[in-house]
Amino acid sequence: MSTGGVMTVAVWRGGPEGSAFQEFRVPGQKSQTVLDVVIWIQQYRDPTLSYRFACRVGMCGSCAMTVNGVPRWTCRTHVKRVAKTGRIEIAPLRSLPVIKDLAVDMDPFFEKWVAAEGRFHPQRTRDQPVRETKPQTRRRRQADAAIECINCAVCYAACDTVAASPDYLGPAALNRAWSLLNDDKDSGTEAILAAAGAKGGCHSCHAMGSCTRFCPNELDPMASIAGLKRASIAAALKRKG
């Protein structure tokens, strides 16, 4: 259902060899997300436009882009909220290499998850019974608070420390590490603390808070990183004592 309005949408086009914004005129709809706008451009104006999406309901974390200078999940960002002047500027996420147009290479992002020990370290085999988890313990509540990350890389793109320092693991990876550190079923405590205390780990964070400000799932990676800092320093003191 068209509302009759037409908006100007500037879309970042090109790859590493050269790029610029290209403008499109897109009809406004009554209810329309930024992802809807990108899909419309690809379907009706330029089928070569490259971008990434899958679920369209804020679960898969693949459609994040920079909208009017702000990193957002585009499938859950309504045009009404960002196109106050009738113009939208859509660019790829910051701090990740652009493959083409709006699609970035997520490899460095996920490599840092691995480097941060953001993978599950099992204690038991599949033949053993599952370990019981008590949901009300402090540790479990801390693990739960950080666990709903959808790997969209919005926090990573929002982080000025990531932008300035390519070896910094970034908020998403460290948030994941914090969740695992508090998980009684995970046995990687030492490995996680070693990664957090190493170069580019949690102590590189300046607590500027962009991760927490822009996380679309309203997680608090800055608090997770603060927790890692405390745990890492406590572990270092314990080793000495």
């Binding site: 205390g197 190493a198 170069k199 780990g201 102590h203 590189s204 800092k229 890492s232 320093i233 572990a235 270092a236 003191l237």
Partner: peptide
């Protein structure tokens, strides 16, 4: 010097 020691030293 490891990062964690530098962080500790700066806080101390």
């Amino acid at each position: 010097m490891p990062e964690v020691r530098l962080a500790l030293l700066q806080k101390l």
